[in-house]
Design a protein around this nucleic acid. Sequence first.
DNA 1: ACAGCCTATGTGATTTTATAACATTTCAGG
DNA 2: CCTGAAATGTTATAAAATCACATAGGCTGT
Lengths: 165, 165
Amino acid sequence: MSSRTGAPVGFDLHDHSICVADAVATAEARCAAEGLRLTPVRRKVLEVLLQEHRAMGAYAILDILRRAGFGSQPPVAYRALDFLAEHGFVHKIERLNAFVACTHPGEEHSPAFMICRLCDAVAEAHSAPSKGALGAAARAAGFQIERTVVEAEGLCPACLDKDRP
Amino acid sequence: MSSRTGAPVGFDLHDHSICVADAVATAEARCAAEGLRLTPVRRKVLEVLLQEHRAMGAYAILDILRRAGFGSQPPVAYRALDFLAEHGFVHKIERLNAFVACTHPGEEHSPAFMICRLCDAVAEAHSAPSKGALGAAARAAGFQIERTVVEAEGLCPACLDKDRP
DNA sequence: ACAGCCTATGTGATTTTATAACATTTCAGG
DNA sequence: CCTGAAATGTTATAAAATCACATAGGCTGT
C-alpha cells in the first residue's frame, strides 16, 4: 500500500507480509541468476530486516538468529550482513551502526537515507553522488568516488506532528 | 599554501604550522565571542586534529592526551570531541568512526567528505542538503532534515596514481 | 571574601559494536 | 565418491562508546 516506484518508502504504513515475500523472492531470483548462495542464515537475516522494516543493530539480529536455532556468536550475524550488504540486499546506516533491508532491490543505486531521531524510522531514497556539490568537488580535487554515504537525520512526518501539536 | 576559499582542501600539501595557529586563533575568537570555554583539553584535542590533518579515532587522540598529562580515560577524549563537534570545530566521519578538524571554521556549513580508502586521507567539501535528490525526497516525504552525513569513499589523486602506474 | 551553583574534569567499570583465529561442515564440480 | 572452496560455528579479543560517581575550577550574588 505504499511505494509508487521512485518515491521514498518507509514513513507510511503498508502490507509487510507482501513486501517481505516479494523482496525475498526477488533476492532469491537474483542470487540464482548470479550464482550467489542465499543460505538459511542469510535468508533469515534478510527476512528479519524486511519484516521489521527499520534499522536494526547486528546484535539485535543475532538475538533473533539465536532463538531461531542458528549460531549465536557475532560473526554469524556479521557475515550474513556482509554478504547481504555486498550484494545490495541490505544497507548499513553508518550513523546508527545498524542495518536496513534495501527497498529498491535489484536496481543499481546509491542509497540515501532519512533517519528520524525520535522514532528511528528509516526511509530510503536515491542519491546522485556524481551530480551536485560533492561530485563537483570530487572532480575538482581529482578524487574518484567509489561509494557514497548519504544520511539525513531529522524528524519524520509522524514525529513532526507529535513535536508541535 | 592551499585553500582558496570554497575549494576543497586536504589532498595537497601545505604549511601546517600556519593553518594550525590560524585555526586555533579562530576557534579562540569564536569561543570568546559566544561565551564558550576552550579549555586546555579541548584546545589540545583541536590542536592535535589540526596538526595531524587527517581522521583520527578517539583512542588515538586519547593516547596523545595521556602523554600530554591529561586524563587517560575515554570520556576525557569523547567529551572534548563532543564539545568541538557540537560547535563545528571538528567533524565526525561516521564511516571511519573517527574525527577531523574542520577546514572551514566559523562558517555555517553542512560538510561533505572525500575519504581515500587506501591512505585514509580526508578532504572536506560542502554539501547542499536541501538541494538535489535528497532534499527533494525529504520534501516529498514530509521529512524535516536537521543534519546530514555525506561521505564519499574512493581514491584520492595520489593513490589513483599509485594504483595504475 | 566566600558560599553556592554550574560546568568541566578525572576515574573506574561496563556496554555496545566489530573482528581475529581456527575447527568443522556443506556443497558444487570433476 | 573425492576434493577444494565457501559457509558456518565457536572461542576469544579488539575497538568504540557510554554510565556513574567523585573531585576540581570558575562564575555570581551577597
